[in-house]
């Protein structure tokens, strides 16, 4: 369960570049990313948060039941925590994280819907 930002229209809202979850920076700092913390290590690291999350996103999804939601599946977030997700997130995770993913054999998909196959 991700922290739900209190202010829907806050300019501060940031979306994770890897899983597209939306939180305020304070929550990222306090709890990290509920899905990708293990790889992004956002907790307590403002610099990292700045690099791995962005305010540049569009469309907000409230994922209430990730497991059975088609929307979550389409967005590839069905195994993730409940919470607010962005439809599109602009930007790429830093190269080192990308390489890290590659090493694990995980394909990195940008969240800006550029690769729709």
């Amino acid at each position: 369960m991700a922290t739900i930002p209190a202010q829907a229209r806050s300019k501060q809202l940031r979306a994770c570049l890897l899983c597209s979850i939306i939180q305020v920076p304070a929550d990222f700092r306090k709890n990290g990313c509920p899905n990708c913390e293990e790889i992004l290590q956002l907790k307590g690291n403002p610099e990292r948060i700045a690099n791995c999350t962005t305010t540049f996103f569009e469309g907000v999804i409230s994922v209430i039941d990730p497991d059975s939601s088609w929307v979550a599946r389409w967005q590839r977030t069905s195994k993730y925590a409940r919470g607010m997700y962005a439809v599109r997130v602009k930007g790429r995770i830093p190269e080192d994280i990308e390489a890290d993913l590659e090493n694990r054999g995980i394909r990195y998909r940008q969240r800006d819907q550029t690769d729709q196959d």
Binding site: L18, E37, E38, R73, Y108, R109
Partner: peptide, 17 residues
């Protein structure tokens, strides 16, 4: 600590979704 990141469904082509 955080859950393990698995890149959920990342290998599934979009059309299958």
């Amino acid at each position: 600590a955080a859950l393990r990141y698995t890149g959920d469904l990342n290998d599934v082509p979009q059309r299958l979704l």
